[in-house]
Design a binder for these strands. Structure first.
Length: 417
RNA sequence: GUGAGUGUAGCUCAGUGGCAGAGCACAGGGUUGUGGCCCCUGUGGCCGAGGGUUCAAUCCCCUCCACUCACCCCA
């Protein structure tokens, strides 16, 4: 029989790596909830239409990266490739927009994309998402960026850069696209093959290209062709960020991959590193709710890549932060006779709120002590029904004795250091 | 989807067309029921899978699979 293995791009996590991942999730969630974003838990599987309509047919995600399958009744279902579309579905389904004109939510969990895995890219990965609905006020754009910034700072994540752009609205983007296409066609010989195709498919994306940097240096830039309203919005976002004390780089090359964005887009990168290292990305999506069958509603959100931030933390934290040494206790049964005594003592310890690891097994004392020592336990307790039992301090090499009938003396020893 | 690299012990990796190796880990002993340091010993392998060349393949050739990295794209 073939050996069982995890699916490609789906990882098991333990130890330090898991600790960091959970820390990133916890800190991000706490930062958002502290800022009064309400937690929401969303399904991992949705009807495929949710993503077809929400993410947009033309995106790569929908075209080739979705885990789509049929359930027993023949409905087409999809493992969520991102969070926003499912969130908007819930927002509409439960009429959240009727309940309150303004609402803010945060969530976290796994996302799935069928891409070729590589560094910083998994098929199952995890995001923490934040969405703020119902207000087009530029302060909200700034608020969200600030929260992403605060999350990364709380984690102690060294240096990172926030890149900010505006990709305008439909009104100003269409005329601009025509200008851009004209420029690209004129300079078509300087472009790579991919970019020549982008002229037709999605001209804005040439700004993402790494090889054509020189060729497009003189290309017209959306930021300089914003309509009056979009320009005012963008300037207000910058002003508000400045009031928040958050520094950003204006980067006209930030063009998001998903169809639904308008106006504000932003990405956060570590100081060095390429496209794969985007830690947080987000933007405004004022037309999305309407696209998905709801009333016109402003919205903005971001997603934080948990594994990417955790990976970055690992590079920064040379040694895992052990913190204050915790008293740790192993309870060792020497042989068969001591097992009932172990059960009784262990129950008392756990009931009293003292963490302890039971050690039973066929090994000799030497092996058991080595086992406990290797795992860094400070104390070993040898329970017994015969009147008294022994507590050994592995670090000091000393032993104490106390009555088997009670455990108070053990706790006193452990906590009096 | 495209390109490159790597698959040998639980882990990290050497190695050779002719008996399969080290370090770490694990187990036992030295110390007859007291850990760490030291010493000795032991367990552990379809050398990724299938086919081909050869007297003989873990090694050379082909195919497949997996992993890693990069492209594309994205968090």
């Amino acid at each position: 029989m073939a050996k069982l293995s995890a699916i490609r791009g789906f990882h098991d996590s333990t130890g330090d790596i898991l600790e960091r991942i959970e820390r990133v999730e916890a800190v991000a969630r706490k930062t958002l909830e502290f800022a009064c974003y309400e937690p929401i838990r969303l399904p991992i599987v949705e009807h495929s239409e949710v993503f077809l309509r929400g993410v947009g047919h033309s995106s790569d995600i929908v075209q080739k990266e979705m885990y789509t399958f049929e359930d027993a009744s023949g409905r087409s279902l999809t493992l969520r490739p991102e969070g926003t579309a499912g969130f908007i579905r819930a927002y509409l389904e439960h009429g959240l927009y009727k309940e309150r004109p303004v609402c803010k939510y945060c969530y976290s969990g796994p996302m799935f994309r069928h891409e070729r895995p590589q560094k910083g890219r998994l098929r199952q990965f995890h995001q923490v998402g934040a969405e703020a609905m119902g207000v087009s006020d530029p302060c909200l754009d700034a608020e969200l960026i600030t929260l992403a910034d605060r999350t990364l700072r709380s984690l102690g994540l060294g240096e990172f850069e926030i890149h900010l752009n505006s990709i305008g609205c439909e009104a100003c983007r269409e005329p601009f696209k025509q200008d851009l296409v004209a420029f690209l066609q004129k300079n078509c010989t300087m472009l790579c093959e991919d970019c020549r195709q982008r002229i037709v498919l999605n001209p804005l994306r040439v700004f993402d290209c790494k090889v054509c940097k020189e060729a497009i240096e003189k290309a017209p830039v959306m930021l300089e062709h914003l309509c009056q309203e979009c320009l005012e919005h963008f300037q207000a976002v910058k002003a508000c960020l400045s009031a928040f004390g958050v520094d950003v780089n204006i980067n006209p090359r930030i063009v998001r991959g998903l169809d639904y964005y308008n106006r504000t887009t932003f990405e956060i990168y570590p100081e060095e590193g390429g496209a794969q290292s985007v830690l947080v990305a987000g933007g405004r999506y004022d037309g999305l709710v309407e696209t998905m069958g709801g009333p016109p509603t402003a919205g903005i959100g971001f997603a934080l890549g948990v594994e990417r931030v955790a990976e970055r933390l690992q590079q920064k934290e040379k040694k895992p932060d052990l913190g204050v040494e915790k008293p740790s206790l192993a309870v060792i049964a020497l042989g068969e006779q001591e097992k009932p005594a172990l059960c009784r003592v262990l129950t008392k310890l756990w009931d009293a709120g003292t963490s302890a690891m039971p050690v039973w097994g066929p090994q000799g004392l030497k092996a058991k002590l080595r086992f406990v020592d290797k795992r860094g336990f400070r104390y070993a307790l040898f329970p017994s029904d015969a009147g008294r039992m022994i507590l050994k301090d592995m670090q000091a090499g000393s032993q104490s004795e106390g009555p088997s009938a009670e455990t108070g003396w053990i706790m006193a020893h452990i906590h009096t250091l």
